[in-house]
Amino acid sequence: MPEFVLVAGAWLGSWAWDEVVPELRAAGHGAHPVTLSGLGDRRGVPAGQQTHVRDIVEEVERRDLREVVLVGHSYSGIPVGQAAERIGDRLARVVFVDSNVPADGESFASAWWQGPAALEASIAENGGFWAPLTAADYDGQGLTGEQIARIVGGSTPHPGATLTEPAVLTRPLGGLPATYVKCLLDGPEPSADVAELLTNEHWRLVEMDTGHWPMFSRPGELARILHRSATQS
């Protein structure tokens, strides 16, 4: 059975998948949520973007996983997309959950909607970290007050270098077998770079009628989508 390696986005740790993991395991899959360096219970560990790529690759290698489905949410699509090409024939599929995707030589900040300088300034003002969102920032994303409180309470500042260092890809991302999960409350259409990737025969689009954090708002539905993605060819 496929082995899922689950990586949540900025500010979050492995705990973000607590309601998804039991569903996957009940379906017979392995499920391995990862906390990236500098976040959650690994707070204080120095981290750049390539550190996060290594975190993911090392999880796969340490557990000697095969038939791996890498899952990257939000920011983590960038290191997950790079890790996918580095684990070779261990990879079965990549699932990008409403996420950024890596482009060789480009960073997360490169595509920031206010421009990279704005994000870099915010990181500098916060001592080299990207400050977590406030409760109000989660409005309109299909989350209950309890779910928002859980996310805010568990979030930790995100290491800024992971957002400003460039991605390193050795071959086109469109050649990987991939599913892109678009969460419609966060915008009705994928970004232009994702739309271009979806023209590749190896890529599939799945839509969810929820917000940007479906592991909290719709964990059962997300688990079922992940399960189905593992059977795609």
Rank of each mutant, 00 (worst) to 15 (best):
A178C: 09
G127P: 08
L36A: 07
R171G: 14
V206I: 09
R171M: 15
A16S: 13
H29L: 06
R224M: 11
R218C: 01
Q147L: 01
V5M: 02
V60W: 03
G44A: 08
G142P: 03
T134F: 10
P190D: 02
A27M: 05
W15C: 01
A8G: 11
H202S: 15
Q114I: 09
V53D: 03
G30D: 04
V206Q: 09
D137I: 00
L169D: 01
G145F: 00
G13A: 08
A8N: 05
I148M: 05
S74M: 00
T170R: 12
V168F: 09
L91Q: 09
D193N: 13
V20Q: 01
A10Y: 04
S217N: 02
G140K: 01
E189D: 14
N126T: 13
L6Q: 00
V97T: 04
P219D: 08
L226K: 04
L65T: 05
P102L: 07
S191K: 15
W112S: 02
V69I: 08
L169F: 09
D193F: 08
W17Y: 03
A124R: 13
I148R: 00
R171C: 11
W203L: 09
T134E: 10
V57F: 08
V45N: 05
V5F: 03
V101L: 04
V20P: 04
C183Q: 05
S229Q: 10
T144G: 00
D137M: 02
A135W: 00
G77C: 02
A111W: 14
V71I: 07
V101C: 07
L173K: 03
G38E: 03
G28R: 08
S37E: 10
A16I: 07
M215I: 04
T51Y: 07
W203K: 12
L133D: 14
D186P: 08
L12Y: 11
V101A: 11
T199P: 10
S99H: 12
G175L: 12
I151T: 01
G128H: 10
T51F: 01
V69Y: 03
I56P: 00
E146T: 05
V5Y: 02
L185E: 06
P214M: 02
P116C: 08
A131R: 12
N200F: 12
L65K: 09
A118Y: 13
G38F: 03
E165W: 01
D104V: 14
G145T: 01
G154S: 11
E120V: 12
D209H: 14
S110C: 11
V95L: 07
A121C: 13
S229I: 04
S217P: 04
H212E: 01
R224G: 10
S76D: 08
T179E: 06
H202A: 15
R86V: 12
T156C: 03
A161P: 11
I56V: 07
L185P: 10
R54F: 14
P159T: 13
L184D: 00
V101T: 11
D89W: 11
V97W: 03
E3Q: 14
V71Y: 10
P132V: 02
L70V: 05
D55R: 02
M1H: 11
G77K: 10
